[in-house]
Amino acid sequence: MIFALLRRLGQMLFVMFGISMLVFLIFFATPGADPAARIAGRNATPEVLEAVRKSFGFDQPIYVQYATMMKKIFITGDLTSFVNRGWKVVPAVLDTIPVTLSLVIGAAVLWVIFGLLIGIIAAATRGSWVDKLLMVLGLIGISMPVYWLGEMMNLITQSRYHDTWMFSWVPPLGYKNLSDDPKGWFLTLVIPWITLSILYIGLYGRVLRASIIESLQEDYIRTARAKGLSETRILLRHALRTSLISFVTLFGLDFGALVGGSALLTEVVFGLQGVGKLTYDALQNLDLPIIMTTVMYASFFVVMANALVDIVYILLDPRVRTS
């Protein structure tokens, strides 16, 4: 078991190494463009260009360039943005991580709880009006674009109905540190959490319902009925338990992608300085060092989430453990 985990960890490191190589090559070794000019940004002076060239070692062989880059990101952490005149990239990215994590973890808690509830209730009442209603609601949730939903939320809670008793508690847009102001942290994030989770609640509810209903067709459910178990127990201990495997897979992928920057739209709409927002701004300025760092950070998170899913798999499915 421990051996298997260690091996999984080794694989993870290997994949990350591969990704870093790939990202580096795409950004700095694509022929036809001077990487120094890209890093320096538009309208850079020759002096800046020269500084960039020196700092990143572009006059040296490609593997030295790669090593220099990795050193700047992981060891010395002094990768500098030239577009933003000397802004240190690594601390900037590190600063945004708590914001994104707060947003995504909170939303994930919501969507897991409500996704489970909707999936289970719909599967238990399949065919009835409750099931149909939940599925239609789920579909609506999936179809609402998150930026539109976010703007609507803002319109309602920040301006239109802000002064009513219902939304007067909603603080202005922005992020408050959990350690400085726990209450403020919570209140500013409630509306973003809901906004971000609605899509996933709809998605997970529908997927889970389908998966449970599929499980209910299995032979072992008939065995469970023949044993004289109650319908609730059959649903929760037998059908749901085996359906959780697909639920967890989906969750790992979505969670990893969101933490890696896919929460971009939500962050932009609610003015949260997260990883997504940082990438978004960097893209607008063509700030290559930042883009490079966030892309690597994002891919690392996806890889890590996948590894975690594999570990949860081992806990959930004994067949993976021993076969």
Partner: peptide, 21 residues
């Protein structure tokens, strides 16, 4: 209450008759 206690059943395909987890 009868099922499983007074009347029990054995199924055809043992490969799928047990919950895998």
């Amino acid at each position: 209450k009868l099922r499983g206690r007074e009347i029990a059943m054995i199924f055809q395909d043992p490969m799928t008759a047990l919950t895998p987890v």
